[in-house]
Design a protein around this nucleic acid. Structure first.
Lengths: 326, 326
DNA sequence: TCAAAGTAAGGAAAGGTTTCCACATTCTTA
DNA sequence: TAAGAATGTGGAAACCTTTCCTTACTTTGA
């Protein structure tokens, strides 16, 4: 492939001048510019980005490390992040950790060696000590010391769900969601705030007997058996708020199997926005996260790494998504 | 960050020797090796991959260009491709074309400039003329001159669906699927072969009055109205084969709305494997594609670029996925 | 009209590797 | 024991840019 030297030789100019034309910087006589541009077209010269990265010490690559891109919400987020960063001229490298700490760490090393410009980190692991201070990191839904983060307003989401269920006349409440297993882990999951918002609001109106179902962090799906166990002994609840739409759907199926009508007998509110379930019969009532806004915030944070030294945290509003299950 | 020169100086050896240790190549006295390894650990040296790419003229990056990673099957394929290529030491760059030819072309240029090692191409556009002969490309489900491809055995999938529906006693058949709009486009879509296999098998047993519904290539979802139109005037069909599970699901909903029972009155077979619909009530009977096998084939093709000059095409077997809709 | 400012262009260093080549040392074996 | 092979090591070129620095020419303005 043709390189900048070929262009310079053929145009009868110096390398530096060609570089100036390409980057549109410094002084170049318009006559010279035209001549060079003609040659570039003629021999179909395209600047070698690797060499450019070499000198500039940056490569316009952003890596997105996440547990699993096939998870509905993560997949959507990935899509919008890619779309957003494309506008900024970044390329996105995808790194599924597949929930394996080791793979995540291998990726972290790889990315450091590849001098990626930034890292979007979405993890359930406590990898604080592996985070190189030279690496620009944005985290989503998890807080690490010194790392700016973007998250939905999960607390408000919990409050919103509680309010809605109260409004609809529910009396016996249940929350189903994964958890950071109390305080044993130093990772503060944003996701836990859904639970906190939900329970605190109910507490504020004098309701404290909320059934609380926990299951291990990072399980994005639940099996039929698990749902069965969750509901056993709690057939009196009439208002359920779940950590995700996927879980909500499983719960609804199980309720119906037990002769309960949704929403007549039990109201169910999910989380994420119910988008993926639109074509599947009942539309799930849900607290919506907005992946597009989140992606936008992430994009802004990443690009602002270059202007300011500190990047602020961002909380993205959630919204109520009307459905047929509450 | 420390570089190879720092290591060499601190260890009192030459740069070349350090390089030999890192790459485990050539002759190095084990004494020297130990000394160098100690220094590497001490100053936490990690080779700069950009510089390495510069000299080696390859960067271990594979780009996956596809219309939309949020499409269920594509998303799964992406996941397994990433998993597979990780084993080979490749990183995956994700490029959603969002069905825009222009974005696809911008990406193609970008990738060429970045000297990616290979490209996995999944497109509905006829971009043959933009494909640089120097770029290693594997295509999935589309055939381009001189480009090796990987595809499911779509023809056999069509045959399999036809056989099954016949076996179940269906008399009036319908095929719903997108199409390359006849021969007007030079792109040969593998997807069309599902239709061909289905119809040819039925033809071979004397059935030719198959209702054929086409809609534009690249529409991975159908709206309620579209499905309504598709079925209007065809309420006598009792065996339907659709291009995807997503479409199958929409069709089932519409049939049920019209008082038809599935599978009692009408049998419906989808395509992709019915995985995503497992938790959503009825399990869809489906012709399954195996994204894991496909990813494996793609990985092998990419790595074999380095051994042989020609890479052969690969057809991946499909399988019948039992469900409750046929 | 001459100095200063503005415009134009090229040489060369720097960025961090790998690898070819040359040289030096040690081991084999006839 | 000397020639040849095997082992060990380092210098320097090459990969392709960007950019600093220098030089040179042109314009401006007092």
């Amino acid at each position: 492939m043709a390189n900048i030297k070929d262009v310079a030789k053929k145009a009868g100019v110096g390398i530096a001048t060609v570089s100036r034309v390409i980057n549109n910087s410094g002084y170049v006589k318009s006559e010279t510019r035209l001549k060079i541009e003609k040659v570039i077209k003629e021999i179909n010269y395209m600047p070698n980005e690797i060499a450019r990265s070499m000198t500039l010490q940056k490569n316009n690559i952003v890596a997105f490390v996440l547990p699993n891109s096939t998870h509905l919400f993560f997949g959507e987020l990935l899509y919008y992040v890619e779309e957003e960063l494309f506008e900024y001229g970044y390329k996105v490298m995808i790194c599924n950790s597949s929930e394996q700490l080791e793979k995540e760490l291998v990726y972290l090393d790889m990315l450091k060696n590849n001098r990626v410009d930034a890292l979007i980190l979405l993890t359930n692991n406590d990898i604080e000590k592996y985070l190189d201070k030279n690496l620009r990191v944005i985290s989503f839904d998890r807080r690490f010391e010194g790392v700016p983060y973007v998250a939905s307003d999960n607390y408000q989401g919990g409050v919103m769900a509680a309010k809605k269920l109260l409004e609809l006349g529910c009396k016996n409440f249940m929350f189903i969601g994964d958890d950071a297993q109390g305080d044993s882990t130093p990772v503060i999951t944003e996701v836990t705030k859904r639970r906190i918002g939900f329970r605190e609001y109910l507490h504020s109106v004098g309701i404290d007997n909320v059934v609380n179902i926990e299951y291990p962090l990072g399980n994005y799906m639940v099996s039929t058996e698990e749902v069965h166990d969750m509901l056993t002994g709690h057939m009196d609840v009439d208002g359920i708020f779940t950590i995700s739409d996927a879980v909500a759907w499983a719960v609804i199926k199980e309720l119906e199997k037990n002769g309960k009508r949704v929403p007549e007998d039990v109201k169910v509110i999910g989380f994420d926005g119910g988008r993926s379930f639109i074509n599947l019969g009942k539309r799930i009532t849900s607290i919506g996260q907005n992946p597009q806004l989140i992606a936008k915030a992430i994009g802004e944070s990443i690009s602002s790494f270059y202007n300011k030294s500190t990047v602020e945290d961002k909380i993205i509003p959630i919204y109520f998504s009307e459905g047929e299950t509450a």
